[in-house]
Amino acid sequence: MSDAGAWGFTDDRGVALTAVHRPERVVAYVRAGAALLDLGVTPVAVYGSGHDGEVLDPVKAGGLAAAGVPYLGPGRTLDEEAVRSLRPDLIVDVTYDGKSAYALDEGVPGRLGVSAAVLSVGNELSLSAIIGRFGELGASLTGADGPGPDVVASAEAVLRSVAARTDVGVLALSGAGPDQVHLARPHAWPELARLQELGVRLLDPGPGAGANWLTADWEHAARLDPGLVLHDSRANAVGPDVFPPVGHARVAPWNPETPPSPAAYARFFADLAASLQEK
């Protein structure tokens, strides 16, 4: 905007937000807050989702804990007076349907008298578009250009080269217990869809109920014959120390809520390239 003090941003619900001054005190959903931190905006606090407990999930936290950003607990049970005491001038959440905030009760911003920016992380946008939208929000809050796409492009180029030299079948999943697993449908996840575009051979779990996941037993997962399993590493999922071996597949962590920042996804792509090359 021409006035350096004024601020405006249209979020992914189509809501036009304006303020006389650029927001400086941001409260955000953990995933959004971790991305904003990478982009130069340090939230005054973050909150979790319905999957989260009273302690910040270190997998979802990015650099938030190291930066000393307080965690307020799950968004649906927020202590609104505690939030009010932080004097926020913007709340940032994510949406999977382009309509409603994922982690926060819709009435909270209104009751607090605070504007809310809600950005899409669903599969109606490509991964690059999702990262770009967070970059636009970050730039609007800092008044400076954030990290460019070059860091992601470089990591993608390496991953594309590695994928072209391997034929490893990759299965992304979230462990539900020793007898049950949620198998990711690659097209439903922007980062998995991007991996397919880069030449990684993502395995589809097959027909059945569920738009994002197919819930099955571990024997079904093994029959898909993956060479590499990307397991949901969040605290609410069961890890490889509990779930049974998936055939002879190696395992590597996958955070389905990776912060939508260039730095975070560059690390994910670099780590996957290394995992694909392991023997």
Rank of each mutant, 00 (worst) to 15 (best):
R185K: 02
L171I: 10
P186K: 02
A237H: 13
H220A: 14
A235Q: 05
L192A: 09
R194N: 15
L192I: 14
L171P: 09
P240D: 02
G239M: 11
R201H: 11
A222Q: 02
P207C: 02
A172K: 03
R201C: 05
W213Q: 02
G208R: 11
P178H: 14
L214G: 01
A216M: 12
Q196I: 08
L230P: 14
P186N: 04
D232K: 11
W213Y: 07
V200N: 09
S174W: 10
G227C: 09
L203T: 00
L195S: 01
E197A: 07
H182G: 15
L228N: 08
L203V: 02
A193S: 01
V242D: 15
P178N: 10
L214R: 07
H182W: 15
E191T: 09
Q180R: 08
D217L: 02
G227Q: 09
P190G: 10
V238G: 05
V238Q: 06
V200F: 07
H182R: 15
P207H: 01
L202P: 05
L198Y: 03
E191W: 05
G206Y: 00
G206L: 00
A176F: 07
N212P: 09
H187G: 06
R185A: 01
V181D: 06
G175S: 02
L230W: 13
V181C: 06
L202Q: 04
W213N: 03
V170F: 09
G199T: 05
P240I: 00
E191N: 06
